[in-house]
Each structure stands twice: as C-alpha cells, then as structure tokens.
Design a protein around this nucleic acid. Structure first.
Lengths: 236, 236
DNA sequence: ATCTGATTTGTACTATCGTACAAAAGATCA
DNA sequence: TGATCTTTTGTACGATAGTACAAATCAGAT
C-alpha cells in the first residue's frame, strides 16, 4: 500500500530538477552568469537543454530559483544565531558572537542543501561583481533586512561608534567574506603554502578575529575631520 | 612650422585606440567580460567593430592591453608610497602609512590615466570574480611581488603576528577594497543616505582605519587552538 | 599631385546563444 | 490496459557572438 503523498516528488530520475539547479549553481558560482550557457548547465547535470526550459522557463528563471532556494534558510539561520548572540552578556563576547552569526552561515550551509552555503555565497559574490540585475533585486529585498538587523545589533554592542562607521565596516566584512570564497587559492599562494585558503574553518576564524577588531577601531568621524587631501604619504 | 614628433600619435581622430581602451575598461568594469560584446565597446567608443580587431586583434588582447596599461604605473606608485611609508618611525603610524600606500593607488590613479585607478581596480575585482583566465595570469605574475612586499612590510611593523595571519588580513583588505568599488551604492543604502559609498575619500579613510585595527588584532594561531568546532554560538 | 603605409569602414562567415515546440517516453490511475 | 498528465528528448529558429578581410579613407613624404 503506502500511498505516496499525492503524486508529487516522484519523477523518473532521482530528480532532474535538483540536478540542474545544483549544476547551474556550481557553474554560475565559478564562471559567472554570462559565461555559462544553458547547454553547459544541461550537460553538467546530465540533462537535455530542453529540460532546463521546461523546469525554469528562462535562464533568469533558473538563477531566480537558485536564490529562492537558499535565501530563506540562510536568513533563518542567521536570525537564529543572531538572536542567540544578542543574549550574550559580555559586550566583547557578544560582538564576536554577532559577527560569527553573520559569517558562519555564509560558509556552512544553514540548511540541508548540499555543498554548504559557501557555494551560494560565492555565487552571490560573482553576481554582485557582474552587476546582475536579477540578483541585485533579490538581494536588496531579501538581505537588507538581515543586514540592518546585524548592523543594529553591532551598533548596540558598540554604542560609541557612529552607525555610519558600522555600516562601512560591515560592508568591508561582506567584501572580505566574498573575496575569501572567490579566490581562496590566493591565500595559499601568498602564504607560500602555510595557510589553506580553502579551509572554511580557518577562513571563519581569521575573518571573525580580524572583523571584531575592525569594528572596535576608534570612530572615524570625530577623529579625522578632513586631513590628508592629497596622497603625499606621511611626514615630510 | 612646428614639426610633429615624427609621425606618431597623430591619427585621424583624437586617438581612437585610446577611446576604445577607455570604453572597454568602463564596460568591462561594470558588466563583466562576457556580458560586453566587441560591438558594444566599439559603439561606446564611436568606433567600428573592425577597428577593435585591428588594434587589439582579439577581445582577450583588448583586456590584456588594459592590464598592461595600468599595472606598471599602479605598482610603481605603490612602491613609491610603500618606500616612504617604511621610513616612518612610529610603528603605529608606519602601519597606517603602509596600509594607506596600498589602498590609495587603488582608488585614485597613480598616473595620468583618466578616470582614476578606481575603474581599473573595479575591473580587476570583476575579472577576479568571473575567474577570467587572462586576468588571473596577469594578476598573479604582476601583483604578487607587490603583495609580498606589502605583507613583509606589515609583518615588520607587527612582528608578534604570524605571517599567516597577515596574509589572511591583507586578503580581507583587498576583498573589502574590491567590494567597496563594486557596490558602493550598498553603503549608501544601508546607511540610509548618511554615508556616500561612492565617495573615494570616505572609503579610503574608513578602509584604512578599519584595516589597521584588523591587522593589530591579537594573533589567532596561539589564541584559539581548536575551540568551537560546531557553530552553536557562544555560551549556552 | 601622387605614392605609400596606416587606419577605418562595411560586410560576411561561422559558431553559439537562449528559447520554442512537437514528438517520444515515462508515470499515474480508472 | 488504455487514458491522461508530466517529464524528457530532439530539433530548429532567429539573434548575436568573435573575428576575418577587402575596399575605402586618410596622413605624410616625395
């Protein structure tokens, strides 16, 4: 007996749709949107180009679905971790916990989705660099709330720093995060093999440590009004 | 009379070759390599598609020439500023000067090239995200020397920090730098208009301030051996 | 003025792009 | 089993890609 739910999630192959999504995610994340053709994706997924059209209608639709698939879980996980972090009493520890709550879900998946969140985060980095319109819209309306929540939380644990500075520094955090996922090999190369840029645990710890210190830097607005207009370096 | 030098730099139009280079640089930097067609570039430069082929042979050749045009001056300027920075006696001031020497040429052109170095830096950010092969090769063999020089200089002014940490943190610096140039509007948006992400001077000051603090953060290797394997946030 | 070499134009070729769509194949249930 | 719906396949079409190349145009020396 054992009725299937109704008639859903029973396709011929072990879900071609998911295979296409996964292949597209990987290819987009490493080569950008425009460099990857629908045929490339279909081939990588072992599917027919027509199947992509059938499931996602257009190439943009495919990208859109990738975002829809990840944004929810990742933001949810971030919210959970943020809520927990805000309960930390010690201000220094709390700041670190907040930063960690922001960073960790970007590296390790916040949900069951295979491959971890790193791939999706790398995808976002690449789309952002390419100025992809589809991605830009989704990002702005999906992540800005979360970003504001984090900025506010950080601001609360660093009340003496102007919000403007917090915004800049969290922007730097995201940039560093993105770049670490985009070119991890550069870290390995520049450290002459002493560090592994692909190691998520190292990246997270290094990023958290550095970022916490950056947030704790003295406020800028009041410290440096308008000095150094030219670049003439320092002294003499 | 007034003889022209010999017969160089006197083309029909006020230098079509330069116009093509400038247009390509701008388009590549904002849309990525693959999203921009040779015809787009020619149109933006007021040239004929065939002219692009004539001057640069291929689309890759065009990108290559853009890099050749900028890498030299920018590295030269960085070297000069770095040399000056290393002469600063006070360690704290020296660190800041070094970071500034790294950051400033990326925003403001180190040479006569129009538009400032920001455009070229944004281009590098985008190419890096797209995993462009032409760019990857050039970058590795052109910028790694400079990067090592900066890492060494920073290491000297922070002897107690392991080189590995310095590498990671300078990697974060570059990521933050890139991202600031790629999506400056995000800063404006998140700060609700209080900050202008497109303002180079602000970006530089914020970046320098934050990065100096990040470099000065306590060493990671010795501080955190292997704690926090899972993500379960801090405390309970 | 004419010749010469450098540059620009116009056009064409082949490859590949995103997408549409009809036919085939598989799944579901009466 | 046969009817019906979902999914996959195969193919094709128009658009656009990068690039090649001959003809036209120009600048400077003779």
């Amino acid at each position: 007996m054992a009725r299937k739910p109704t008639s859903k999630e029973t396709t011929r192959k072990p879900n071609m749709r998911e295979a296409i999504l996964a292949a597209a995610e990987e290819l987009f994340a490493t080569n950008g949107f425009n460099a990857v053709s629908v045929r490339d994706i279909a081939h990588a997924a072992g599917a027919n180009p027509g199947s992509v059209t059938y499931h996602f209608k257009t190439k943009d639709g495919l990208l859109l679905e990738i975002y829809r698939r990840h944004c929810g879980p990742m933001n949810l996980r971030r919210s959970e971790l943020l809520a927990a972090a805000k309960r930390v009493r010690d201000l220094q520890d709390r700041l670190e916990a907040i930063v960690r709550a922001y960073v960790v879900p970007a590296f390790t998946s916040g949900s069951d989705l295979a491959g971890g969140g790193a791939r999706f985060t790398r995808l976002r980095a690449v789309m952002s660099a390419e100025g992809n319109e589809v991605a830009r819209k989704i990002i702005a309306q999906t992540f800005d709330d979360t970003s504001h929540a984090f900025i506010d939380a950080i601001h609360e644990s660093l009340p003496h720093i102007p919000r403007t500075d917090i915004v800049w520094r969290s922007h730097f955090l995201l940039g560093a995060l993105y770049y670490s996922l985009v070119t991890p090999d550069r870290v390995s190369r520049l450290s002459r093999g002493e560090a592994d840029g692909s190691d998520a645990a190292s990246a997270i710890e290094q990023l958290v440590q550095a970022t916490v210190a950056a947030f704790q830097a003295p406020a800028l607005d009041q410290a440096a009004p308008a000095r150094r207009r030219t670049v003439a370096s320092s002294k003499t």
